[in-house]
Design a protein around this nucleic acid. Sequence first.
DNA 1: CAAAGCATGTAAGCAGTTACATGATTGT
DNA 2: ACAATCATGTAACTGCTTACATGCTTTG
Lengths: 194, 194
Amino acid sequence: MSIRHAILGFLSWKPFTGYELKKLFADSSSFYWSGNSNQIYGCLIQLHKEGAVTSEIQLQERYPARKVYAITESGREKLRAWLLAQPELPEIKDHFHIQLSWSEPLSQTEVDGLFAAYEALLGNQVLMSREAARRGNPKPGRSARESLIWKHIEDGRLASLESELAWARKLRSALAELKKGAGALTEGAGEGGR
Amino acid sequence: MSIRHAILGFLSWKPFTGYELKKLFADSSSFYWSGNSNQIYGCLIQLHKEGAVTSEIQLQERYPARKVYAITESGREKLRAWLLAQPELPEIKDHFHIQLSWSEPLSQTEVDGLFAAYEALLGNQVLMSREAARRGNPKPGRSARESLIWKHIEDGRLASLESELAWARKLRSALAELKKGAGALTEGAGEGGR
DNA sequence: CAAAGCATGTAAGCAGTTACATGATTGT
DNA sequence: ACAATCATGTAACTGCTTACATGCTTTG
C-alpha cells in the first residue's frame, strides 16, 4: 500500500489540488503519511502520465495558479482493483516498547521518567484526537455506509490510543509494586545493576 | 529509531552472530523488522567500524565460519544514550482502514468479503501469537523487572490484535444492520452506490 | 535427490523523510 | 518587520525491502 491509492481515494471523492491533498494528509492521523510536497506533487505528475487523473490549471487573481486534479474512468478502475485486493494486517511500530525491552541498564527512576514522558505524549495525543473529532475535519459522507465506516475508524483510533495509555499506566504501577516488594526484602539493593 | 538500536539491545543481552540476529528479528513481531541479511550484516559491519562491537571469528568443523559479535563499553554507552532519549508515539499503518475508507464504489457483498478476509487474517495472527507465547521464544530474564516488562509487551500485543478483531466484527455487523434497515425501507436500492 | 539449515555478504530498488527554491499576499 | 498562507516543484538522503550469489551439511 502506498500513498498513490490514498490520493486516488481522495480524488474519487472530489477534485483537489496538490496543495489541498498535502494538507489533508498532514492533518489526518488515519492517513498516516507526512504530506510532504515531494511525494504528493511527484505522485500526481505520475498519475497524470498514466492517465488516472486529469489536471486543469486555474488562474487566480491574488494567488498563484493552481492545478486541480480530477480522477478519470481509468483512475476509478485502478482504485477499484486496489480496493478489492487482499487486506493486509496493520503494521505497528512500537518504538517505546522496544526502548523498554532493553531498559535493563537504566535505574528504576530513569525508567519511571520514560513512562512519565510517554504517558504525557499519549495523553496529549488523546486530547488532540478528541478535539479533532469534535471539530470534525473534512470527510466524505456520500452514504450512510461511508459515514458509519469513517466514524468507526475514528472511534477505533481513539480507543486504541486510550488502551495504550491504560497499558502504560498499568505496567508502570506494576513496576512500582515490584520495586516496593524488592525493597522490603533486600533493603534497596538491585538498583542499576544487572 | 532504527534497527541499530535493537541490534545493540540484543548484543547488550549476550553475544550473537549475524545469522542468529537475523532469526531473532524474523521470528519476533515486537521487533518488527523483516530480518533481511542486507540490513543486519551491513549494520554489524558499521557498528564494528564505530567500535560499538567486537567480532570474533569462530571456525567450525562442519559448518561455515561464524562471526560472533559482542558489545563494547562504548556500545553500551551508545545504547544507554538512546534508551534515555525522548519516547516516541507508536506508528500505526492501518492499511485495511484506508482500504475501507474508500470502499464506497464497492457493493455490500464485496465489502463483506473484505471483512471476512481481514478477520481470517487477524484470527490467524491471534492463534499464531498465542502459540508463540506458549512456546516462548528466547528472551532475556536478567531481573524480575525485565521479565515483567517483556511479559506485558507480549500480552499487550495480543490484546491489541484481539481488540482489532473485535472492532472489525462490530463494524461488520453494524454494516449488516444498516443494510437490513435500508432494505426494509427502499426494497434493495442503494447497492453499488454512485 | 531435493529441500532446509548454516553462514556471510552484495545489488537494485522503493517509499518515504527533511530541507531547499521561488514568489506574491495577507494577517499580527 | 515578521510570520503564515497560497502554490508548485526539486535535491539529497535514509531506512528498509526483495532478490541474488556462494557453498557446504543435514534431514526427509
